[in-house]
Computed example of a mutant assay.
Amino acid sequence: MNTKKVVFLFFSTMFLGAMGGAIIGALLYDPLFAEGGFWNFIFGVLWLLGIGAAVSATAQMGYFAYLLLNRLALSLFKTKKLWNRVQIFLIAFVFFDLFYFRYLAYATGDETMGGYLITPTLLLIYAALVAYFKQRETHRGAFIPAFFFMYVITTIEWLPALLVTEINDSVWLWIYLTPLLVANTYQLMAHHRIQENA
């Protein structure tokens, strides 16, 4: 992949992530637009675009970090089969952590653990779907690495939002998660296409 393709991937990912964050923010975050008025709306959209762009930049760092991690792990574990098993274990571990520790940290007396299972399960299903399409477009061995990247790496990138107690608000969590999902999905699905056209 040449420099031109890397630059294209960088800016297109940032643009799509920013748009994803702005759209979901405009739909969900009412306080930003509560005062009304044209300039308040413009400011709100620009602010959300900035947040989305910043979050998508984090997603890009996570993607290239995973590419490096994958190469190092393949040399460390010697066989792809063993590394795939480790990735499956880590997916299960992160799934458990994502609902259980958030339940311990934020649940009130009348809340059940079931409510904290919804988002991790939806994210797991989404990651599996993206990995399935990645596998269809490339090869059978791409499923587990793509699944791992979309679930585990996205969750790690999402961690700063999850750890801030003040924003344990589903709206803010989605404002942070949406650009990550958009950017990570785009990077994963665009990478092999860009390489094929290089």
Rank of each mutant, 00 (worst) to 15 (best):
W158M: 10
Q135L: 10
I118H: 08
M1Q: 11
Q135N: 07
N168D: 07
L16T: 02
E111K: 09
G141S: 13
I91C: 09
R140E: 14
Y186A: 08
D110A: 15
M189D: 03
F15H: 07
V171I: 14
Y186K: 09
G62I: 05
D169L: 15
A54T: 07
A53Q: 09
V164R: 09
G44N: 09
L124F: 11
W83E: 03
F33I: 04
F77M: 07
L9K: 15
N2R: 06
Y106T: 00
E157R: 06
F15C: 10
I23G: 03
V45Q: 03
Y126V: 00
A161L: 00
A57P: 10
L162Q: 07
L177M: 07
M113G: 14
H139Y: 12
Q187S: 09
W83D: 03
A59W: 02
W158R: 05
F41E: 08
Q187H: 06
G52Q: 04
T178W: 04
N70K: 14
F147W: 12
L188A: 05
V130L: 05
A73L: 11
I156C: 04
Y29A: 06
V45C: 02
G37M: 10
L124G: 00
A131S: 07
A131G: 06
I156R: 00
F143M: 07
F148R: 03
T119E: 14
L49H: 08
L104H: 07
E35T: 12
G21P: 10
T58C: 15
A65D: 08
N70Q: 12
L98S: 10
G114Q: 01
N197Y: 15
T178H: 02
P160A: 01
G62S: 05
G52H: 04
N168V: 01
G62N: 05
L122R: 01
F95H: 01
I167Q: 00
L162P: 00
L117C: 01
V182G: 03
L46V: 07
M189A: 01
W47R: 00
I118Y: 14
I51G: 10
S56A: 13
T121M: 08
L162V: 02
L72M: 06
G52N: 03
